[in-house]
Write a protein that binds this DNA or RNA. Sequence first.
DNA 1: CTTTATCTTAGAATAGTTCTTAGTTAGGAT
DNA 2: ATCCTAACTAAGAACTATTCTAAGATAAAG
Lengths: 139, 139
Amino acid sequence: MSKPTEEIVQTLKRKQLRVTPQRFAVYANLLSRTDHPTAEQILSDLNQDAPVSSQATIYNCLQTLREVGLIREVLLEEGNCRYDANVQPHHHFRCGSCGAIADIPWQALQTIDLSHLNPDWQVSGYEVTVHGTCEACQA
Amino acid sequence: MSKPTEEIVQTLKRKQLRVTPQRFAVYANLLSRTDHPTAEQILSDLNQDAPVSSQATIYNCLQTLREVGLIREVLLEEGNCRYDANVQPHHHFRCGSCGAIADIPWQALQTIDLSHLNPDWQVSGYEVTVHGTCEACQA
DNA sequence: CTTTATCTTAGAATAGTTCTTAGTTAGGAT
DNA sequence: ATCCTAACTAAGAACTATTCTAAGATAAAG
Ligand SMILES: [Mn+2]
Ligand SMILES: [Mn+2]
Ligand SMILES: [Zn+2]
Ligand SMILES: [Zn+2]
């Protein structure tokens, strides 16, 4: 999922965003991982060698990136907002033991027919959350 | 979904819980509604006429009721934990405009085949979240 | 009735996130 | 190349949702 630097820069510019070191770092970090980190995890990852960004800026960057549709939130546990640079439709698996979240490709599950739901609703999409235990957490 | 008082009392006792006025009120309130309220909404609902419960007790009750499996959390928007007295498997519809959450009966959607997912995962269940706009929010 | 483990509560504490405000800067304009 | 400024960063304060503390109250068993 990791992209070359120049491609990331172009992606940000295409969204009319100034390419600051912090914003680049946050987006590049999210693109490089598939573990749906929290803001706090991104912060400590970026600053582990040398200070790169403040906490407030991480939150600002995440919010901005979300507003332009480059990243999205994943809400699967209380009080923990996780982020995902994969904005294509896909599903998630969550380990109830360790909290790990993994992607499930859209095509891995059959398409669900939503045509018989409440006709008053204007449906725009859906996603499936699968619950279970990951390999590492099985006794 | 509302149940007679005695039935609620018996349900709590069956779970070895002391039937306090506050705990009864929280559970009865949740049973009487299908809108997946937040702790704050339950609090103000219970106390609107006369003081019935403190904030801390609402949180305590919700946690206890969840631990014994009488209610469950519904996490569909950031920073807002909602509660549901319907603990049978079912799906949810969320209006992206007003945030309203509605139940979708389990049988309303076809069963999803999860047998071809990562075999290292021990799958225990799943649920579908449908996104869209509710009737009231359509222009 | 007594007894006591459980429960409630006000207020303090905590954690995640957002706000404020002053200084910095990316990048278009000159 | 330098200037200009709207956009951005950042430290700390503020805010909000939730949990903790510890002291008094009570459901319900005996
Ligand atoms: Mn994902
Ligand atoms: Mn529900
Ligand atoms: Zn796990
Ligand atoms: Zn709506």
